[in-house]
Every structure is written in C-alpha cells, then in structure tokens.
Design a protein around this nucleic acid. Structure first.
Lengths: 220, 220
DNA sequence: TCATGTCTGAATGTTGACATTCGAACATCA
DNA sequence: TGATGTTCGAATGTCAACATTCAGACATGA
C-alpha cells in the first residue's frame, strides 16, 4: 500500500500557506489580504492566490467583498455563538455515526491521540500545539464517521473553530489544560462502548462548554 | 427600500446558469463539463467558468479531479444516505433555532409558501415546480433561523438535495404530492407554536421519510 | 497473447496583461 | 458651511496565451 501521491495544485499550496500565516498571527483579525502582495510573497501568480483565497473563504476564515478586497474575519460574540451552535449539532452526529462505523484501528487512533495529549500537557507544550492536538482528535472522529458530506461540513467550520480555540487558550490557558484531557478521554470511551443517548448528549455538551468558556473570556 | 443591486461577478452568473442546466437535465449525472465548451456557450472566459465550477463543486453538484476534468455527480444509494443523514441533523437545528428566532413576518412567509404549495398541487403543476417550492420552504426556514454558518452548511447540501428530490418526483410522483403539503404544514405550525422536543423529532423524521422514499425508488 | 513503453491529442493548470470598479481626496456650487 | 460632483490611485475582475498533465491508441518485445 503505497502513498496515493496526491498531486495538488498551487492553489491548495497557497491556501495552506496563507492559513498557517493567519494562525500564526501574521495576519491578525481584520487585516486585509492583497492578492498581488500574496502572489509576490508566495512566488505564484495572482490567479492561484485568488483560487486559494476562495478556499479560505469557504472555510470562513476570510471575507471577500466585490472589488473591495478580502479581510481576515473578526471574532465577535455572535460569530462564536453561530459557530459553536452548529458545531454542537455536527459533533453530535459525528460521534454517534462514528460509534457505529469506526474500525478498531480508528478507535485505537483516538486513544493514541488522547495519550499524546496527556503527554503534551505533562511536558508543558505551548497552547497552540495543544489546540492542534485538540483539532486533530476531532478531525479523527469525523474521519471515523465516514460520512463525506459531514466531514466536508466540518471542514467549513474547522478553521474558524481553530481560530477561536487559539484565542481561548491565550486567555484562559490553565482552565483549558485542566479539562481538555478528561473531556476527550470521555468522548473516546463513549464512542467505543457508550450508549447512543449519552454519547449524543456528551458530544453536544462538550461543545457548549467550550462555547461558554470562550464567551466568558471574549469581552475582556 | 430599493433593491440592493447586489453586483455579482460573472463567476456567480456562470455558476447559476450551469446549475440550472444540470437541474433541467441538460447535463445528466456522470456527464463531463468541459471548461472551453462552457466558456464559449456562456460567452465568458475560461477563468470565470472555472471559478463558477468551484462554487458548484462546493455545493457537491460536480466533482473535479486534477487534470482529469469535472463531471456531474452520480447518485448512488450511499450518497443519498450521507446527504439525508446530515440534512436531518441540520434541519433539526434549523427548525428549533427558527422556533426561537423567527420574526412574525418570516412565520407568515412560511405559511404563504404552504398555501402556494397547496394551490400548485391543486392546479397540477409539474413535479419540478413542486420540488422548487419544497426547496423554497426549507430555504425560508434556514433564513428564519438566522445562523449564517448553518445557512452556509445548508447551501453546501441544497443543490444535492434538489437533484435527489427531482429524481424522487419523477419516479414516485403521486406519493410525493400526497405528503408534501401536510408535512410542510405540520412543520410550519410546530415552528410557530410547537414545543422544542416534538419539533426537533418531527423535523428529523421528515427528512428520514424522504430518504426512505427515495431509497425505495432508487434501485429501479 | 500479454505486458510494457512511447506517442499524441485534448483537456486542465498557470500565468501576466488588460478592463472595471471602488473609496478617498479634492473641487465646485447653493 | 454643507452637500454634491469629479478626479485619481489602487485594488480586484476578466481575459486569452502558454505550460503541464492525463488517458487512450499504437508499436514493440518476450
């Protein structure tokens, strides 16, 4: 079983680079992204940058207005409410679907990620790295569910959630570190051998708790 | 209150024209869409067509592979399962959110659509027109919910659902006409003044019923 | 006969130049 | 002084030409 090669175009490459730059804070919320500037900096043509920006717009990371440029989205309380409300519904479906569909290999992968998370917290990694593990866990749940459309809907939210969690970890870091492990371990166990109802409720509640924690910190 | 003008680019225009052509059966499932051909037929450049095709791909109507062209998606039983499973979760959230957030004007709009549907069935309109009204109703529910991200997630499914419903109405037309009115009237009433639990259950069941009806007809 | 290698036509991927549109600053007039 | 019209720079929207990649046809060899 060799790797599928997976040739990608310059547009995807550009999208990845720009997304990383946003996560690293190089383009703070509200910053404008100029196509020519990005094209020069990335060494590709404006067409490719343009196509890459379209991806990011579908991920909800940036916002484009006709003939007025593109900007990094700003995080308002209303945005957090919208994103996490939808995410609760998606996570609920993903968890229950994964409960039925996940292979033992995928279940083991979830456990491995929880273990890795615990080790990371013990080693005192940065908040950004911890958030990356958090995101990787949920990505694995969606992959285990095996519903392409559901996974796609998650991708459209994923980057925004990532951005929000990054902000959360910079403010209420200690609280996040406390809960992140137990919450994910509980989820992994319920997906493996919980009953449908509790799993659905816990998956939803997990998200709502994250929303409340973030909203409590946001106005500051 | 004048119309918002809403300047759009050629890409959006192209996407709309191609989408309509697919719905009208001009490009049946599995057909290949050649960029040069479309550009010539629409009178725009390949770049705009290309950008328009990207929209349709995010709507799940077409599928693009690197250097291998784009094709209209084919409807398999697995696809129907995926789409309607996700849609059930989204509709559930949309209905309950709309229950809280809808203005009286929006509620009246829902009723008006149900009335229009009843008149349409009585007048014996074509199946395609009835499906269009069906879609318009659900679009109105999502609009009433007022969650941008939720609405966006629905848009990513909307065209696929439309395509599926079109196939459903061409096969089991009579059954569809019977149920479409009562089902939507029930939903509209529950959104206006039902309790949360029943509304959530009915909104989900409404979708699951559609899925079963479609799957029963599909293998034929 | 089958497997492998090469070639070719046709499609998409990429690019830089040109056209269009917008907002801000300035000028004009009641 | 305030509102309206005009100019202008800068950014995005659009286009047609060039480069790259693929699937299938054909030839070659064991």
């Amino acid at each position: 079983m060799t790797s599928p090669v997976l040739r990608r175009g310059l547009a995807d490459e550009a999208a990845d680079r720009i997304r990383d730059a946003i996560f690293e804070g190089h383009f703070p919320p509200g910053a404008t992204l100029r196509e020519v500037e990005l094209a020069a900096s990335l060494g590709v043509s404006r067409g490719s940058v343009r196509e890459g920006l379209t991806r990011l717009e579908h991920e909800g990371l940036i916002r484009t207005i006709w003939h007025r440029g593109t900007r990094v989205v700003d995080v308002t309380a209303a945005d957090v409410g919208e994103v996490y409300t939808l995410r609760a519904a998606l996570d609920r479906l993903a968890a229950t679907t994964a409960h039925h569909a996940a292979t033992s290999q995928q279940l083991a992968g979830l456990d491995a990620l929880v273990t890795e998370m615990a080790a990371a917290v013990a080693a005192g990694v940065t908040g950004a790295q911890l958030v990356a593990l958090d995101m990787a866990f949920h990505e694995a749940v969606y992959a285990a569910a095996g519903n392409t459309r559901l996974h796609e809907a998650w991708r459209a939210l994923r980057s925004q959630v990532h951005l929000f969690q990054l902000r959360r970890v910079t403010v209420g870091a200690a609280h996040y570190r406390d809960r992140v492990i137990t919450e994910h371990r509980e989820l992994a166990e319920l997906i493996r051998e919980g009953d449908q109802e509790t799993l659905a409720a816990v998956a939803e509640e997990h998200v709502h708790a994250a929303r409340r924690a973030l909203l409590a910190d946001l106005p500051a």
